[in-house]
């Protein structure tokens, strides 16, 4: 018999049925008997990814970020995608799949978080290294299916001001000695924005938080995808109720090979 290997999950069967779970253990902890009622959702998330329970500070930090990321609002492309599913009354899973596919990208998405985390690992909290990079940004030359990226990860290519929301989030995150990268980001934000000439984004805050939580690049990318789904679900369901008559279809300007335009 071929087995599935795991370090995460142990299930003990009922005596009468090997397919029925008597008890389940997550990284050694009895989930239903011991954790349930004594464990926060974010603690379970952290345990699943890292194999160890978070400290109180880590759980608090992750919970703050989870609230920040829970809903990007209907202007966000991933939420827009989920709403497209909702308004057409697509099946529930398609809303989240749409949000995942669009929210996976290198512009405001989970891949951008991955790339920012990669930058943190490469540049650390070294001011001169960041300066050199921001003055001469280079992207990876690894051949992959990801399209070429046009902006510096973590900075808004269309921005001209640091939004108050970003400032408020940075002020409210529980930052202390356990979060050296977030601390450094707060102290050096103006410097970074001056060098890049662009304001930082939510993805920068998410990636920096993930670095301070000790997540790997893959774990950070995955958690970013996961934490943004609640808003996608809610907005999809809302548009399903509103219906297509209240959802923009937008106008179109079609240009042919000869430059002739046709609008609708």
């Amino acid at each position: 018999m071929q087995a599935i290997h795991t370090k995460i999950w142990l299930e003990e069967p009922e005596n009468e049925n090997p397919y029925a779970t008597k008890a389940a253990y997550c990284h050694g902890y009895n989930v239903y008997d011991d954790m349930l009622g004594n464990c926060r959702w974010v603690e379970m998330l952290f345990l699943l990814l890292k194999g160890e329970a978070p400290t109180q500070q880590q759980a608090d930090l992750l919970e703050h970020l989870a609230i920040v990321l829970a809903n990007a609002g209907p202007r966000d492309a991933a939420i827009h995608a989920a709403m497209c599913a909702g308004v057409g009354k697509s099946v529930a899973a398609s809303s989240l799949m749409a949000a995942l596919a669009v929210g996976a990208g290198q512009y405001s998405g989970a891949r951008e978080v991955y790339l920012i985390m990669e930058l943190w690992n490469k540049l650390g909290t070294d001011e001169s290294q960041w300066k050199n990079f921001l003055l001469n940004p280079s992207s990876s030359d690894i051949v992959s299916t990801w399209p070429d990226i046009e902006h510096i990860p973590g900075f808004d290519p269309h921005g001209n001001v640091t939004p108050m929301s970003i400032m408020t989030i940075l002020n409210k995150l529980p930052i202390d000695a356990y979060t050296p990268h977030l601390q450094w980001l707060i102290y050096n934000r103006v410097f970074l924005e001056k060098q890049s000439t662009k304001p930082i984004t939510i993805t920068m805050i998410a990636a920096t938080t993930f670095i301070d939580l000790g997540l790997t690049l893959d774990e950070g990318e995955m958690l970013m995808l996961l934490l943004r789904l609640p808003g996608a679900a809610a907005h999809s369901l809302e548009q399903k109720k509103y219906g297509h008559k209240k959802f923009p279809f937008y106008s179109i300007e079609l240009e042919d090979q000869h430059g002739k335009k046709e609008t609708q």
Binding site: T6, P13, Y19, Y25, H27, G28, N30, N38, A53
Partner: peptide
């Protein structure tokens, strides 16, 4: 591919107690 509990090879840490609230 129904998977019974014993079809999973657990290779993680031993059982331990979750902290109290």
């Amino acid at each position: 591919f129904p998977t019974a509990c014993h079809d999973i090879k657990y290779e993680g840490v031993k059982k331990r107690i979750w902290k109290e609230k």
